[in-house]
Design a protein around this nucleic acid. Structure first.
Lengths: 159, 159
DNA sequence: CTTGATTGTTGTATAGCATTACAATCCGCC
DNA sequence: GGCGGATTGTAATGCTATACAACAATCAAG
């Protein structure tokens, strides 16, 4: 049984193929291959951040706030592709964990500037290391060249 | 206002990069590139299936049932990587839309065999065409060779 | 025939969003 | 300088897609 408030994070979905099943057209679709690959990536991410309650959007938020101190919640939401209300909930979570803080924006009294706390900086540094390590292992069977090719093609795909 | 039961499907998340933002380490992570690419792929899928209320898992379910008639809900769940209860809800949706039906399994009175209806077969044929077309356009700027390379690398990544 | 596993089902809970509405504030224009 | 429209954060509400646990019916193995 899971204590409701504990840092647990989501459970990774299985990526294993079921033997004896015909996957038909799915095997020719980029979209489906992307989904499977992303499940594997999520699995690696989950292992890297186990126990911290960190999810991909939360990690992204930490990185973005860390690299762009003082940005507003609205901008954070746009970066993450979520609504303002969602960006606020996400920020609430970071603030509650004392990883980030809202400071009054010097030039706009409607908005906050977001900053990492020392604790946030430190956690982010740790996370960057482990996430990068697990992301590297992700292409376990991929050579460094293949990895770079994949990265380039993915980026090109997303325009 | 959305009529609750209408076929509407989820809204695609934006994939656009926000100018003036430093994405820091994210740009070196396969996991992040995968996420962005998948958003683009989902967008293409959404356009392909607009108005049918079809989501990726539903499409996958249609394809799998179509190519493996008579399979059970439990197996369908395993293929999709979801719990049995979820597979049941998904099946309920297909049955309600008269796209699939449950027939008593000849050898196991606990389970159902899943089959597409004629309507399901026909919709699936349509969907395969449009989804494949949009999936092809997905790599708009990708050459056919690049597309095949990407597919191969993605498959290798997911083992 | 009994014991343990499996299947579908139901009920309950949760996370993660969206949508809408609102007050405070900003900005451009008269 | 003041007014109207846009923008910001926030709150309230709701939905969707999942999970998990518990249950009866059924199967399978000894």
């Amino acid at each position: 049984m899971r204590p409701p408030g504990s840092a647990r994070g989501p459970r990774p979905t299985s990526v294993a193929r079921v033997p004896g099943i015909d996957y038909d057209v799915l095997d020719t679709l980029l979209g489906y291959a992307l989904r499977r690959a992303q499940i594997a990536a999520f699995d690696a991410f989950y292992r890297a951040t186990a126990g911290h309650g960190i999810t991909p959007p939360r990690f992204t938020a930490l990185v973005i706030v860390g690299a762009n101190p003082g940005l507003s919640q609205t901008v954070l939401g746009r970066v993450l592709g979520i609504a303002r209300s969602g960006a606020m909930l996400l920020t609430d979570w970071l603030v509650r964990r004392k990883l980030a803080e809202r400071r009054p924006h010097p030039e706009d009294r409607r908005s906050w500037g977001l900053f990492l706390t020392l604790r946030g900086e430190s956690l982010l540094a740790d996370l960057k290391r482990t996430v990068r390590a697990h992301d590297g292992q992700l292409g376990g069977t991929l050579t460094e060249t293949q990895r770079r090719t994949l990265l380039r093609l993915l980026r090109q795909l997303a325009e």
